[in-house]
Computed example of a mutant assay.
Amino acid sequence: MRFLPFTIALALAPLSAAAQCGGEFSNFVLGLKNEAISAGYDQKTVNDFFRGVRKDQKVLNADRAQGVFQKPFIDFSRRLISQNRIDRGQAMSSKFDSVFRRIETTYGIDRGVLLAFWAFETDYGAFQGDFNTRNALVTLAHDCRRPELFRPQIFAAIELFSKGDFDPNKTTGAWAGEIGMVQMLPRDILENGVDADGDGHVTLKTSAPDALMSAAKMLSELGWSADQPWLQEVRIPEGLDLSETGITNKRLISDWRAKGVQPRTGDLPFDDMNAALILPQGHKGPAFLAYPNFDVYFEWNQSFTYVLTAAYFATRLDGAQVYDAGQPETGLNGTQMKQLQQRLQAKGYDVGKIDGILGAKTRQAVQAEQSRLGLPADAWPTPELLNRL
């Protein structure tokens, strides 16, 4: 176990019950300053960090407008994956081959995995975001939706500032405070940043080696198992018990093989490895086996659709063929999905926020109701299910 210095450990502690969000923004900032000083940072460092800080309404607007995640997997993946991105990924693989070799030797993480994140997060570094990172973090911590996530990031940014690796007035990134080519939060940079190019600084905005090695270290720390698969396209047999599918229903590979699940190409690895059978758009659409490393993706991003698309794109960059889209049944639009979530919630299911997004909790509730109603329990909601409810 790696221990942090006392001042950093205190600054990165989870949000306490006494810590406040909301209220007057100036009072909130004053509270942050006092907490930083109590954590051991000197007055000048604290004043320099917070000088000119302001609430950014554009950050809040972006936080509340993530409609892209309402798109189903096929639409979402086709939007994000293009031949141009594949070609550029292959070019980047060649350009930074020595870095990827170091990563594969040190962490056992396939280059396709990192290339996919690099592509989706910033289009290989081309679009890293122009939001002031300090302002974004303070704004989101002041907002009371997820202060427990963003407040600790402020103190991590102060620590990076004290090391000379963060400029509160010039460091920019995504609206949610992520920085650099692979979009890492300050706390992740502090804990997993790697000076891969040897210049004495962790510079994720301009150094591809730093960004890629840091992302690899972070995935390793999150639990990535070296030299193991993460996702594989498969075909499912007629008559499969669909209630056994879903990200939380894991079976041994040998069990899936015995049930008639077969890889679309190649072979299934490791009979004694657990895997979940994922049907992102029901039993008539694409099918994938998700191996243990797939779960690590959710530590990077909470969106099921994003995670599956990133994992699938990584396999494409490694040479996998385009998935068989099949002929999925018609799904629900955003309004219908919200209606579905409301009806499921009324039946006692925890579907999280009513947001029109088919997330993990909604999928589990859908599958349970499909089983109850005698419908194919593949976790893909259809107008028929909505009407039956």
Rank of each mutant, 00 (worst) to 15 (best):
I8N: 01
I8H: 02
A11W: 01
L12K: 00
G22W: 02
E24L: 08
S26R: 06
L30I: 12
G31V: 11
E35G: 02
A36C: 09
Y41S: 08
D48Q: 02
R54W: 07
L60P: 09
Q66V: 07
P72R: 12
F73P: 10
S93C: 06
D97L: 13
R101S: 15
R101Y: 03
E104D: 15
V113R: 08
A116D: 12
F120P: 14
D130M: 05
N135K: 09
E148I: 14
F155R: 10
E159A: 04
G173D: 14
V182H: 00
L185I: 15
R187M: 15
L190I: 05
L190N: 07
D195T: 09
T203S: 04
K205T: 10
A211V: 06
A211G: 13
L212Y: 09
L212T: 15
E221Q: 07
P229S: 01
W230C: 04
L242P: 14
N249D: 13
L252D: 09
I253H: 08
W256G: 11
R257T: 14
G260I: 06
V261D: 05
R264A: 15
N293H: 03
V296L: 01
F298N: 07
W300S: 09
Q302I: 04
F304K: 00
A311N: 12
L317Y: 08
A320L: 04
L332W: 13
K338N: 13
Q339N: 12
A346Y: 00
K347V: 00
Y349N: 01
Y349W: 02
G359I: 08
T362D: 11
R363K: 13
V366P: 12
S371H: 11
P383R: 11
L385F: 11
